[in-house]
């Protein structure tokens, strides 16, 4: 019942997002054809605009777009002629998603143990060492980590391929480059979350009951302390799954992260709105899952 209501609630949000994105990019000055065939004759430009229905009133265009959307058609790309937005998304999204999932697993696999360790050793040397590493991961950007990794492990040691997207081995360096930042954040969030509940009543009760420190940490402190990480997982996964401009550029990976930046720089209207919608659907579904997980982990939360 709760799920059904939430799913219904998504429809207006999607409508709002598509409207906002559609209007935002179109009201902005500059158009998709500014940088080509300059100086174009006004006649040519008029024809192109006519072909893509850009000469109609905005609301009519939006209506046309929506009716296409219902049929699953995201429209033609204005920059990559002869390609529809759906084509580009269908080709690129699985690639970005594969890489994103790997990076997500990497982020949790590294971030959760290190955050747990930090919280368990709070205030001690181990805590600060682990915090320093996590923070370094957070503040060294991917465009530094990536080239350094490639230099060391691909060019010098030849352990991994330099670029491209062909075999599991090709995934290793991009995964680390992409996941490092997120693993640092996960580690910090888990540490804070666990420290915040360390002395809560239910933890005291568990300790008084005679549970050992380590099982109190695992079964009670971790369970509630991980909530901030759960909260963060929704947006984090949505970011990861839709690809990263820097990583895809660096490793020549044919995902959709590159299109996110390029289409907004070149005002590829339909492409922008299409990508916004893809991202939005992912995010909404993931956030719904987050809320469900929240209720499952923390019995005190109720949405009724």
């Amino acid at each position: 019942m709760y799920l059904v209501r939430r799913l219904m609630g998504m429809l207006p949000v999607m409508l709002g997002i598509s409207f906002l994105a559609f209007m935002l990019v179109r009201l902005a000055p500059g158009g998709p054809f500014d940088h080509e065939r300059r100086p174009a004759s006004p006649e040519i430009e008029r024809r192109i605009r006519e072909k893509y229905h850009l000469d109609e009133p905005l609301l009519t265009q939006y209506g046309r777009y929506l009716s296409g959307l219902i049929r699953g058609d995201l429209g033609p790309s204005l920059k990559y002629r002869n390609h529809s937005v759906s084509d580009i998304v269908i080709q690129g999204l699985p690639v970005s998603m594969t890489l994103g999932l790997c990076a997500f697993v990497f982020a949790l696999g590294v971030g959760l143990p290190s955050g747990f360790y930090s919280a368990a050793k709070q205030g001690g040397f181990g805590d600060y060492a682990s915090s320093l590493i996590a923070l370094s991961g957070v503040c060294v950007p991917a465009f530094v980590v990536g080239p350094l990794l490639v230099m060391e492990f691909a060019v010098r040691k030849k352990m991994f391929p330099v670029a491209l997207f062909e075999s599991p081995m090709h995934l290793v360096l991009p995964t680390v480059t992409l996941g490092l930042y997120f693993s640092g954040r996960v580690s910090r969030l888990l540490r804070e979350g666990m420290i915040a509940v360390r002395n809560a009543e239910f933890v005291m009760a568990a300790r008084a009951k005679g549970l050992s420190d380590i099982s109190v940490l695992f079964r009670h402190v971790f369970r509630i302390g991980v909530l901030p990480v759960v909260s963060y997982s929704g947006p984090m996964l949505a970011d990861l799954l839709t690809g990263s401009f820097v990583v895809e550029n660096l490793f020549q990976i044919p995902g959709i992260g590159v299109f996110m930046v390029n289409s907004s720089l070149s005002r590829d209207y339909t492409m922008i709105v299409g990508l916004v919608l893809v991202y939005a659907v992912l995010l909404l579904v993931l956030n719904l899952l987050v809320d469900v997980a929240y209720r499952w982990l923390d019995p005190r939360v109720s949405y009724e």
Binding site: L20, A21, T242, M260, S264, L265, Y279
Partner: peptide, 26 residues
């Protein structure tokens, strides 16, 4: 929260890039 969702669901990179490139000259 639906309001936040709507803003949240605009990929921030698209929002910021469009914002900066379009509004700057004007």
């Amino acid at each position: 929260m639906r309001g936040v969702d709507v803003l949240y669901s605009l990929p921030s990179i698209i929002f910021v890039v469009v914002l900066i490139t379009t509004l700057e000259s004007a």
